[in-house]
Design a protein around this nucleic acid. Sequence first.
DNA 1: AGCGTGACGAGTA
DNA 2: ATACTCGCCACGC
Length: 135
Amino acid sequence: MSPVEQNAGPGLPEGPYELSEALVLAAGLVPPGRAISYGGLAGLLGAGGPRQAGRAMSMAPDGTPWWRIVRADGTLPESLSVRAAPHYRAEGTPLKGTAGADDGAGLRVDLAAALWAPDAGARTLLARLRAGVGP
DNA sequence: AGCGTGACGAGTA
DNA sequence: ATACTCGCCACGC
C-alpha cells in the first residue's frame, strides 16, 4: 500500500472545507518520519498562514499527526516536544542536536532532511483540498 | 468597535 | 545562539 493511500484512505471528505479542517486533512497526508512547518503546510494549501495552521493543530482531533507539523526552526513548544519525542523515536524522524534533554524537551527536527515533499498522489489530494477550501 | 491572545515567522541587534 | 520587535490573522471578550 502506498504511503498516500495509507494516510488518505479511500479519499477525502467532500468539500467545501473549513480552512481548519483542510489544514488537519493536509497534516494527515504527511508520512511518518517526515515533517513540515506550520507555514509550509498552509503554503501547500495556498490558504491561511502559520497562525491558522497552529490553531488548527491545537484543535485537531485525536489521530491527527500533529507532531509532524513543527515551527520553521524545527522545534515545538516544550510541553508538545515532550509528547512528540516518542513519535519521533518510533518513526525515525531526522533530528538535529539530539544531545540535551532526555525527556524530549527542546528537540529539534532537522527540517532540511525531514521536510515533506508531497508525491504525485499527495499533490492531487492537496489540489482537491485547495479547490474545496476556496469556494 | 477596541483589545488581548496564540501549537507562527522573519528581521534585527 | 539569545532576545526582542513587528507583521500576521482568526477568536473571544
